[in-house]
Design a protein around this nucleic acid. Structure first.
Lengths: 248, 248
DNA sequence: CGAGCGATTGAAAAGACTCAACCACCGTGG
DNA sequence: CCACGGTGGTTGAGTCTTTTCAATCGCTCG
């Protein structure tokens, strides 16, 4: 009991010191409301809540790294995380941007292989960690959770198929428009807030080309930029440029 | 008993008539040996065997089509199938090529949504159909099957991440080399046998560009072509061009 | 034998990248 | 307080890649 109290006050101390700990409850977490944990029963929610560990991440901090072995999954309580692969010359290719409520890193769990991609924070984040054992326990025990994970995996797979098609067939101008619309859904009420380099790495182009196209869009009054932030003004035009027939 | 015998001889008749039916046993199917059905117990193998339906497909025949609702999964007993998405101008983008022993169409099962991609045969195929109900029965009942499906989903997801990166960052020349190496793994002992158009739709380029690059590779003695078939001669050079650091 | 399709080559034009320079902003240290 | 260096954003010009459009070739099938 002394140990526990000591531990708790140590945590408190660390939290005050450098924000490295914040106590988050699974009950109020957005993952529980919209994500794979939706319709999780009380028992397993409490189980999760007691077995997870919470961490505060600064901006641009690594969550996991290509090549390392997965030990569990990450539950994004607050913030945004980019998932990216490294190309031949070490250039980042952003594959996916995860937002509040998303779970990341579960793909690698099933293969048992090292991560093939890396993830790092785009802003300050609260991220909870669930160990491999607890994750698999839930997969085995809770059919609804398992089905949500299966659903999520297959959703991502078809998103990526669409992404591949877009990459392969669209011009860079079209892809920029497409990316802005995707990001707008991720950033919702906020303005899109990414470095130009990250944006270029998402679109799959050179930073200079991206900037030129953003300038064009500005001239055409399709978007506004407030320093690095981007606000879409004319959705219709952007969708037309993106060549949206079907959208995620 | 009469009914069964009658049915069997009808099947035989149809088989002789137009190859539209071939009786295939799950016990000897390659899916059972290498695919998701590996280490499936006897009971469930027999269950599958009795509940599947087999079909013979001609070359370039549709297996399923974007927009339609999935009713089950397809087990590729023999042959190769392209899975593709349609881009803005109706151009095909080949996402995946499935080979003997692979199961296709199970992603859409979990989302419950219509197919987001289409599939059609690249050569003559024997394909078995397993209904949605039977598939989900197996998922629920057989942990090893379920785990294999989860593993397969996550493997495809990381393959696609690599594919996206390759699309976004490599030149067309590099992508052609990369695609040839991938196809070589799929076609194994056979020579790569695809139309130039399909090949271009896999690489994500114009048919003319693809042909030009194949000609270059021929001049450099990296490949040989025998009408439409392609044989790799110099793997080392091809890997160097493809910029292989890590490979699937 | 002609029609039609897939494969191939040529030439011009467009698109995107690279390299280089410059600006604006910010925090640091003298 | 200001000079400094560093980082991220922006613009310009030239070059190379890739696409597009057009034409040709070879083969198969009716």
């Amino acid at each position: 009991m002394l140990n526990i109290n000591f531990y708790l006050s140590l945590q408190r101390f660390l939290e005050i010191l450098d924000h490295s700990y914040k106590n988050i409850s699974c009950l109020t977490c957005k993952s529980k409301q919209i994500g794979a944990l939706a319709d999780l029963d009380e028992y397993h929610t409490n189980y999760l809540d007691q077995n997870k560990t919470c961490n505060f991440y600064k901006k641009n901090q690594a969550v996991f790294t290509e090549g390392s072995l997965p030990r569990g999954v990450f539950c994004l309580n607050q913030g945004k995380v980019k998932v990216y692969a490294l190309g031949g010359e070490g250039k980042e290719q952003i594959i996916h941007i995860a937002k509040t409520g998303d779970i990341i890193g579960f793909r690698a769990m099933f293969s048992g292989e090292p991560y093939k991609v890396s993830a790092s924070t785009l802003e300050e984040c609260n991220i909870c960690f669930v160990s491999k054992e607890d994750f698999f326990f839930m997969i085995e025990e809770v059919p609804s959770f398992r089905n949500n994970i299966l659903k999520e995996l297959s959703r991502e797979l078809s998103d990526q198929a669409l992404f591949i098609t877009s990459m392969a067939q669209k011009t860079v101008r079209e892809r920029v428009a497409y990316a802005l619309l995707m990001l707008d859904k991720i950033y919702k009420d906020e303005e899109i807030n990414l470095s130009r380099e990250d944006l270029a790495n998402f679109v799959g182009t050179a930073t200079e080309t991206l900037i030129r196209l953003l300038s064009e869009f500005k001239d055409e009054k399709i978007i506004e930029t407030h320093s690095r932030k981007i606000q879409i003004i004319d959705y219709k035009k952007l969708e037309k440029i993106a060549g949206i027939t079907k959208f995620v």
